[in-house]
Amino acid sequence: MRKLKNSLKIHSLNKIKVGTSMAMDVLESSFPPSNGTFRSDIAGPIVKPMLQFLSRTKSFYFLDVYPYFPWSSEPKNINLDYALFESRTITYTDPVSNLTYTNMFDQMVDSVVFAMKKLGYPDVRIWIAETGWPNAGDIDQIGANIYNAATYNRNAIKKLTAKPAIGTPARPGWVLPSFIFALYNENQKPGPGTERHFGLLYPNGSNVYGIDLSGETPDSDFEPLPKPDNNEPYKGKIWCVAARGVNASELGSALSYACSQGNKTCDPIQPGKECFKPDSLVWHASYAFSSYWSQLKQTGATCYFNGLATQTAKDPSFGHCKFPSVTL
């Protein structure tokens, strides 16, 4: 960052701020917010010099804030309305700072504020580099739906564009410049389904839901939102099968990859075995995907295969061929 700043200065571009985006995983502790602490492995050698630079150049600490992730990992312990800025009666009071919180977003931001304070930089400004909520996801990804995404983003925009500025409990009245993530659903992005569904727009440019980035449009002026149907954890079995209409050549390569991972992933689809018939590429790939995913999901494997696979709650097993599954 110093080199970038020096280069800008050489070209008399003195008003451009230099910074870098940080996720919440830079914190070793974030609860309660007053206990916010940077990870010990990066606090001294990385974060403190960065904060010194940001303070000296009057730049921003760019922060990614996604209440969806802590909520979805602990939906029984974190109230959904609290995560969506919808809480009317649920609050949390930090036992050390005595600050009262009405939403998860403020709680997360202030944990970074307190962490910076511990390193001696209580006044470095924060810019929300990313925040948002997924409008869809995989079967096993709770709460990823259009209703929640629209609710979160509309409420976030109202808070962040309010005049006078609201700030957070630890920084009341401070302006929080922010970016909503993302403009488009990134339909070719790898990883879990939510990674492809944070957009305000579909890839063809149409709206996923109504939104006003000025925060001035009342919710009643938007079209009604579809009711959420996955705000509770899915219970049951899930299979990973070949998606419809995919390229045969690419599917063949993905099948080869799944079968090359060992653990007898594809033994049942070998000639003469119980899952060989029907002898089709889609059938064999579907079995291989389910077998691969069921064995390796716990180590981070996903049901994606470069967009060639999809999850299903309908058992694809046929006759004597039983497809492996993931049970939630």
Results as ranks from 00 to 15, higher is better:
Met104Pro: 00
Ile128Phe: 00
Thr168Met: 04
Gly120Tyr: 09
Val96Arg: 14
Val112Asn: 05
Leu51Gln: 04
Ser317Glu: 10
Pro122Ser: 13
Arg39Trp: 02
Ser59Thr: 11
Ala144Cys: 12
Ser30His: 01
Arg125Asp: 14
Thr89Pro: 03
Leu54Ile: 14
Asn148Asp: 14
Lys58His: 15
Val96Glu: 11
Asp315Ile: 01
Ser40Met: 04
Ser317Pro: 09
Phe318Pro: 08
Ile269Trp: 02
Phe62Gly: 05
Leu281His: 08
Tyr92Thr: 07
Glu195Val: 10
Phe105Lys: 01
Asp106Glu: 08
Lys5Glu: 13
Gly191Ser: 07
Asn153Pro: 02
Arg88Tyr: 05
Ala254Cys: 01
Glu186Ala: 13
Ser253Asp: 14
Ile78Glu: 02
Ser34Arg: 09
Arg56His: 12
Leu80Ser: 11
Glu216His: 09
Thr57Ile: 08
Lys264Pro: 00
Gly199Pro: 10
Ser178Leu: 02
Ala23Leu: 03
Tyr101Thr: 10
Leu51Asn: 04
Glu274His: 12
Cys259Ala: 04
Pro177Thr: 07
Val282Trp: 04
Pro169Cys: 07
Leu54Ser: 06
Thr168Arg: 05
Thr265Tyr: 02
Ile42Arg: 12
Trp174Leu: 14
Cys240Lys: 02
Tyr209Gln: 02
Gln298Leu: 04
Tyr234Asp: 06
Ala309Pro: 08
Met104Phe: 04
Asn155Ser: 14
Ser21Asn: 13
Glu186Gln: 13
Lys17Met: 05
Tyr82Cys: 07
Ser206Met: 03
Pro169Trp: 09
Asn207His: 15
Gln261Arg: 15
Asp41His: 13
Gly215Asp: 11
Lys322Ile: 14
Pro316Ser: 09
Gly252Phe: 01
Tyr234Thr: 10
Gly300Ser: 03
Thr168Ala: 02
Pro190Thr: 09
Thr161Arg: 09
Asp315Leu: 00
Cys303Ile: 03
Asn247Leu: 02
Leu54Tyr: 09
Leu296Thr: 03
Pro95Leu: 12
Tyr202Phe: 15
Val326Thr: 13
Pro271Cys: 03
Lys118His: 09
Ser30Cys: 00
Arg56Leu: 12
Pro226Arg: 13
Tyr68Ile: 01
Ala242Val: 08
Ser97Asn: 06
Pro33Met: 11
Thr100Tyr: 04
Trp71His: 10
Ile78Cys: 05
Val47Ala: 05
Ser30Lys: 00
Val124Pro: 05
Lys17Glu: 09
Ala242Tyr: 07
Ser260Leu: 07
Ile211Cys: 12
Gln311Phe: 03
